[in-house]
Simulated assay, not measured.
Amino acid sequence: MILGYARVCTPEEDIKPQRKSLIEAGCREIFEDQGSANCVSLPGFSRLQASLKRGDTLVVWKLDRFGCSVKKLEALLTDLRKRGVHLRSLRDGIDTRTGKGRSFCEFVIDLANMERELALERTLAGREVAKKTGRTGGRRRQMTDSKILHARKLLASGMPPSEAANSLGVSLSTLYRWIPAPSKTIQSRSSH
C-alpha cells in the first residue's frame, strides 16, 4: 500500500500543495500534521507509523517534512529499513526501491553516525586537555587565592562578613564556603 505524510510547520502554511502531490503520487491514505515546527507532537505521524506494514511505501512531499534533523531522519530511515517499508520523497527525487535511493539513505545514516562519533571524539579530547592542564569541570572559582587572603585581612580588621563579601564581589555563602565563619565555643559550666 502507498501511504502519504504531509506536514506544515506553522498554521499559516498551506498543506494543500503537499496533499495534492501525494494524491497524484497514488497515496491511498494521507496522514497530516499542522503547526508542528518543533517535531515533538506529531499525532498524524504516530498514526502513520502504526499503519505501516512490510512492503508498504511511504511517500513524503520533501524529506524536511519527514525528519526535522539529520539525527531524526537517520532514526526514521533506519526504522523504515528494519520494518521493510520503502520511502519516496517527491521533491528530492529519492526512492528507496532504487539503488540510488538506497545509497542516499545509507549516506544519511553514515553521516549521522559520523556526526555522533565526531561529537564523542571532541568530548574526549576536551576531557584530555582539561586533565593535562589541571582543569576540572564546572565554573571558574570565584574566590582566588589572592581574594581569600584579602578576605581574611578584611575580616581580621573587624569588617562584617557581609561587607567583606560585597567588597570582593561574591556572595556571603561563597565567602563562607572558602573562609568558614568562626564557630562559637560554648563553655560548659560545672556546678560547684
Score class of each variant (00 low, 15 high):
residue 182 P to S: 11
residue 54 R to I: 00
residue 112 A to C: 12
residue 30 I to E: 03
residue 127 R to F: 15
residue 76 L to H: 02
residue 144 T to S: 15
residue 94 I to A: 00
residue 64 D to P: 00
residue 165 A to Y: 08
residue 98 T to Q: 03
residue 5 Y to N: 03
residue 100 K to R: 04
residue 139 R to A: 10
residue 82 K to W: 07
residue 149 L to K: 02
residue 89 S to Q: 00
residue 160 P to Y: 12
residue 174 T to H: 03
residue 191 S to C: 09
residue 47 R to V: 10
residue 26 G to K: 13
residue 48 L to K: 00
residue 174 T to A: 08
residue 100 K to N: 03
residue 121 E to S: 11
residue 171 S to L: 05
residue 9 C to K: 04
residue 131 K to Y: 06
residue 5 Y to R: 01
residue 84 G to N: 08
residue 38 N to V: 04
residue 67 G to W: 05
residue 179 I to Q: 02
residue 2 I to L: 11
residue 121 E to W: 09
residue 159 M to G: 08
residue 26 G to E: 11
residue 93 G to S: 03
residue 66 F to E: 06
residue 6 A to Y: 12
residue 7 R to H: 09
residue 99 G to S: 05
residue 113 N to D: 10
residue 153 K to V: 14
residue 58 L to T: 01
residue 79 D to M: 07
residue 109 I to Q: 11
residue 190 S to C: 10
residue 162 S to N: 11
residue 161 P to F: 11
residue 15 I to H: 11
residue 127 R to E: 14
residue 73 L to A: 08
residue 99 G to C: 02
residue 11 P to L: 15
residue 143 M to R: 07
residue 84 G to F: 14
residue 5 Y to I: 00
residue 52 L to E: 02
residue 39 C to M: 10
residue 72 K to F: 09
residue 191 S to E: 13
residue 40 V to N: 13
residue 53 K to Y: 04
residue 130 A to G: 05
residue 108 V to T: 13
residue 115 E to I: 05
residue 60 V to I: 05
residue 57 T to A: 03
residue 89 S to L: 03
residue 74 E to S: 12
residue 58 L to C: 01
residue 67 G to T: 05
residue 149 L to R: 02
residue 152 R to Q: 15
residue 100 K to D: 04
residue 109 I to K: 06
residue 71 K to C: 01
residue 108 V to M: 15
residue 49 Q to C: 03
residue 112 A to R: 07
residue 43 P to Q: 07
residue 190 S to G: 12
residue 25 A to P: 13
residue 21 S to E: 15
